[in-house]
Write a protein that binds this DNA or RNA. Structure first.
Length: 985
RNA sequence: GCCCAGAUGGCGGAACUGGUAGACGCGUCAGACUCAAAAUCUGGUAUUCGCAAGGAUGUGCAGGUUCGAUUCCUGUUCUGGGCACCA
């Protein structure tokens, strides 16, 4: 009886589906456990082997927790709004809903193949009106709320209105611009009131810059802009200000930081988030500008260095630039500003080249009256701080390089701590050349300066955040419409009863006028004065984990009772690429919903595990580049493309066997040209991607390659051993071409490809489809192999070859139960101590590995255990069935099949996880490694309870130790009980 | 440029708290079974010197701490991820 994985997997998947074994109740006496995968976008390319990695890991853990007696929620759904579907619609005229639906179906079919334990009754799709109704509803809650800074939480906007009616803006001042008394508030007209409230709402409307492409008439995403031009068509892209919605996430900055201390994210992840939030303590200082009444306000974290300021750098888009540019600098400034407009923020920050332009204006140092030139440069961004910095070249590397580049004299305020070669960012130097700060340690001077500027009224201490409010609108079609109506320039929320505001049908997916989204093309939509922007991709994904709990509720986004039962996601698995986007936004939404009393927890994810990326292992072939000269007419296009193996390419490049290659090329050419009247020169090789599915290991399947594209039909190959293979030889005298290496049959005729590890993508022809592997080896093998590749958190290249080993393991496991010839071999005999020991040693490690998400070592422990049981010829049911339960999370199908064949009733999915009988694991002695000076030389078996004097005696008596001692006494003997012995000579 | 992570045999990786580097698997070599192949099984396989016994070297690179470092510290190189409209 052999292991017929296809039948087995199909059978059990059907039974599990029929019996609804993965259906999860919302109330249970069992403790709850919530395992979540990051929301997938159903892309048109379908799944490749990299996608399911995290799903398999979470599936194993979810199944493991279930066996351990938990009520496990493990849902799946689709983040179905997004740019790719819209782009596809523009190009092919297919409605995004249609292509998305198709993609989802493919996605689902592929997932089902792998045997996941998702409760599909809880599936959600963000593009489904029954889902986005609640996305819109939450948006309205955010719109109708403000952040009360004294209570440090979101509260209803009506609360704020009451506050204004009683106290005016006194307690809730946001900017100096809107300061008013209660009386004044009451006298304001509605539009003014609404304008003021907009400065407080958690979801608010403002103006922001976008990548505007005039030629395409549309706004582009950052990754659609390459080197300042559009990816499609190469048209120029400039910054354009557009009305945009924002989420006031900055108000949550401190709580987002504080919350990190209460959740189990990796330190790296927490660091990335806190760097993104970028809290810094500094000061805002106003500098007078010579000849103007305006002040230049800078933000600095180092007010102590104020006497070292040698120039100012202002963002090129700073509002003062136009005003203060002067004289001969006007033209230069304008030119520079135009240049910067064409640059993306990314390019500006990554630029190594130092650029900038003097404005012609001077600021005045408030303490010593020194005149400081004001420059503009792209490395200062308008959105951060005040958009202007005071540059201290002796203390800041970037300022230093800037000063050097533009020959700006550098003032040294830290004496010997500055060597003139590079800036020194120390806070511990003693200040010099610093007026009233002279002799002070910098660290202490910070507070002194802060007090001084506040006293002088030219500045104040300021906590700053690098994080900006999140842009929450897109000029796109395929997203959630905003439930907002504009009346005379004022935004009004639609009543909740009118939700969902359905996404209308459009004739064309192209952009609307003036950079507006496609919705602006719909007369009825515009007539109703509805908002024409749509929400961004992260809207739906910021709260989906809550909807899974209560997916069919049409009264609420999620009932409080249900969210109180499930609470936080206990385990969240997904990639680091979401580190600062999705993870921060969903944390903010959770906090807002918590503040408003809709849920009972303020951090969505208790523990986060980051999965690494599976990279593609690309394969390359090398086409010969020839320069052929002949006196006769040659039809060059009739010549076949010649592909040279990697081995030959490498040898050519180091000048080895060059004559052999030239010979072969000559041979090929004369065969095809039917004469020898030509000369040629080998100019090199051009490499290009070949589909990995046509390559076994590194060996190219010649016939598959010839059939790949018409131009390769007649391809000629030069193999590793310099044999040649051309269509002419095939049809004619086959042996003729095989000259070199003919005698060496073992080398064969192999074409070795080149390899490189790259991102897995269709365009690189290195994607591997899980369907093919599941079909060939089964889901259980596929699942275990994905895990066996390496640690979940780590990125690693895919290599299909290794899957055989895991498949062999499952067959070997099967043979513990059933032999191909003998049939049933399992029995009901009593197990002996050696068998129990092997089992429990393995199960103990497997449990530990599963608990710490070390699934790769878990799989290898299964292999060791099965190897040991095979060696022990153990076919005993009482041992094997415990193994099966432990295997269930990893390979559920084979486990269920064997479980039922052993005569068990009921599913193995709900069996009790085996407890470890530690009595079989007790050891009395250990094979101690004996080191001499830290180098392992031998091992000695010593009783585990032996104490140091006894051990020393045994060790010193050992021949090997004696040899190394050469009669001398050891200086020291280090003995670590249960670990090792080190003899120091 | 800034932030984060990683680097160990031919390959994926193991070594969990500073204590036997290379578990497990792939590949490969040799052998068994077979008319043959597949499947399966057995054994070898970091490099290097040596017939062997046994040495030497070895965890990206350069230093340091320690009786002992893949593990800790400093510096450095390369690779991957993120940098706010891909999701």
């Amino acid at each position: 009886m052999e292991y017929k994985f296809r039948d087995i997997e199909k059978k059990w998947q059907q039974q599990w589906k029929d019996k609804k074994v993965y259906s999860v109740p919302n109330d249970s006496s069992k403790p709850k456990y919530y395992v979540l995968d990051m929301f997938p976008y159903p892309s048109g390319a379908g799944l490749h082997v990299g996608h399911p990695l995290g799903y398999i890991a979470s599936d194993i853990y979810a199944r493991y927790k279930r066996l351990k007696g938990f009520n496990v929620l493990h849902p799946m759904g689709y983040d179905a709004f997004g740019l790719p579907a819209e782009q596809y619609a523009i190009e092919h005229g297919i409605h995004p809903a249609v292509s998305t639906e198709n993609n989802i179906n493919t996605f689902r079919r592929q997932l089902d193949n792998i045997g996941f334990c998702f409760d599909w009754d809880r599936e959600v799709r963000t593009c489904d009106p029954s889902y986005y109704k609640w996305t819109q509803w939450i948006f309205l809650q955010l719109f109708n709320s403000y952040y009360n800074r004294s209570t440090q939480k979101a509260e209803s906007i009506t609360q704020l209105i009451k506050e204004f009616e009683t106290n005016g803006s006194a307690n809730e001042q946001r900017s100096t611009a809107n300061s008013f008394t209660a009386q004044e508030w009451k006298s304001f007209d509605e539009a003014t009131k609404q304008n003021i409230l907009m400065d407080y709402r958690l979801a608010y409307c403002g103006y922001g810059e976008v990548n505007w492409c005039e030629a395409l008439g549309t706004v582009l995403a950052n990754d659609e802009v390459v080197n300042g031009v559009s990816e499609r068509g190469g048209h120029p892209v400039v910054k354009k200000k557009l009305r945009q919605w924002y989420l006031r996430i900055t108000e949550y900055a401190d709580r987002l930081l504080e919350g990190l201390e209460r959740i189990e994210f990796s330190e790296a992840m927490k660091e990335m988030q806190s760097n993104w939030i970028g809290k810094s303590y500094g000061a805002e200082i106003d500098f007078a500008i010579k000849g103007f009444n305006d002040k230049l306000r800078v933000y600095t974290t180092r007010p102590d260095t104020i006497f070292g300021v040698d120039f100012m750098v202002v963002a090129p888009e700073h509002e003062l630039v136009d005003k203060i540019k002067s004289g001969s600098q006007v033209a230069a400034v304008d030119e520079y500003v135009t240049y910067v407009k064409s640059r993306s923020e990314r390019e500006r920050m990554a630029e190594k080249k130092i650029t900038g332009c003097f404005t012609g204006a001077y600021a005045v140092n408030p303490f010593d009256g020194r005149e400081i030139p004001i420059w503009i440069s792209e490395y200062v961004l308008a959105g951060y701080g005040t958009g202007a910095i005071m540059a201290v070249p002796c203390g800041d590397e970037r300022d230093f390089k800037f000063a050097k580049h533009f020959n700006i004299p550098i003032t040294n305020i830290i004496g010997a701590a500055f060597n003139g070669e590079e800036a020194n960012a120390t806070k511990d130097a003693i200040l010099e050349n610093s007026g009233f700060l002279n002799g002070m340690v910098m660290r202490e001077a910070i507070e002194v300066v802060n007090n001084k500027i506040e006293e002088m009224g030219i500045g104040k201490k300021k906590v700053n955040y690098k994080m900006r409010d999140a842009a929450f609108s897109r000029q796109r079609y395929w997203g959630e419409p905003f439930p907002i109506q504009w009346k005379n320039g004022t935004a009004w929320p639609l009543p909740e009863t009118e939700l969902p505001l359905l996404l209308p049908e459009v004739d064309s997916y192209s952009p609307g006028p003036e950079g507006e989204g496609p919705l602006a093309n719909i007369p009825e939509w515009v007539a109703k004065e509805l908002e024409t922007n749509t929400m961004p991709g992260y809207a739906g994904s910021s709260w989906y984990f809550l909807r899974y709990m209560d997916p069919h509720n049409d009264k609420e986004f999620c009932s409080r009772k249900v969210s109180d039962y499930w609470g936080q996601v206990d385990l969240y698995i997904g990639g680091t690429e979401h580190a600062v986007g999705h993870l921060l936004y969903s944390r903010m939404w959770t906090k807002a919903l918590y503040d408003l009393g809709y849920i009972g927890h303020d951090e969505p994810y208790k523990k986060l595990v980051n999965q690494g990326m599976i990279q593609g292992s690309s394969r390359f072939v090398y086409r010969l580049k020839l320069d052929i000269m002949s006196e006769e007419q040659i039809a060059l296009d009739k010549l076949p493309q010649i592909f040279v193996s990697k081995v030959v390419v490498d040898e050519w490049n180091i000048g080895f066997k060059s004559e052999d290659l030239i010979d072969k090329v000559k041979r090929i050419l004369s065969l095809h040209l039917s004469h020898d009247n030509f000369k040629f020169k080998i100019e090199g090789f051009s490499s290009f991607h070949v589909d990995v599915n046509m390559v076994d290991g590194i060996e190219l399947d010649i016939n598959a390659f010839r059939g790949w594209k018409p131009e390769f039909e007649n391809a000629t190959f030069i193999f590793d051993d310099y044999r040649i293979d051309t269509i002419l030889l095939k049809s004619g005298n086959n042996s003729e071409g095989f000259v070199v290496g003919e005698e060496n049959d073992k080398m064969g005729t192999k074409y070795s490809t080149g390899t490189e590890v790259e991102k897995m993508s269709k365009s690189k022809f290195n994607t591997v489809n899980p369907d093919d592997l599941v079909n060939k080896y089964g889901a259980d093998t596929f699942r275990m192999y994905e895990m066996f590749l390496g640690p979940v958190e780590m990125s690693k290249p895919w290599d299909t070859k290794g899957i055989e080993g895991v498949h062999r393991f499952l067959k070997k496991l099967w043979r513990l139960f059933y032999d191909d010839l003998k049939g049933k071999v399992w029995n009901e005999e009593k197990a002996n101590d050696a068998e129990w020991k092997a089992l429990y040693k393995g199960l103990k490690k497997i449990e530990e590995d599963t608990e710490r998400f070390s699934f790769n070592t878990g799989v290898s422990t299964f292999m060791i255990l099965v190897n040991e049981l095979s060696d022990l010829k153990c076919h005993k049911k009482e041992v094997l069935e415990k193994l099966l339960i432990a295997l269930t999370p990893y390979a559920p199908h084979i486990a269920e099949e064997l479980w039922s064949l052993l005569g068990n009733s009921g599913t193995v999915l709900d069996a009790a996880y085996p407890a470890i009988e530690t009595k079989y694991l007790v050891e009395s002695s250990k094979e101690y490694p004996i080191s001499i000076n830290g180098k392992m030389r031998t091992t000695i078996n010593i009783a585990l309870d032996a104490a140091q004097p006894e051990v020393e005696q045994i060790v010193l008596a050992n021949d090997v130790v004696q040899k190394w001692l050469e009669g001398k006494a050891p200086k020291k003997i280090i003995f670590v009980k249960g670990k090792m012995v080190n003899v120091v000579i």
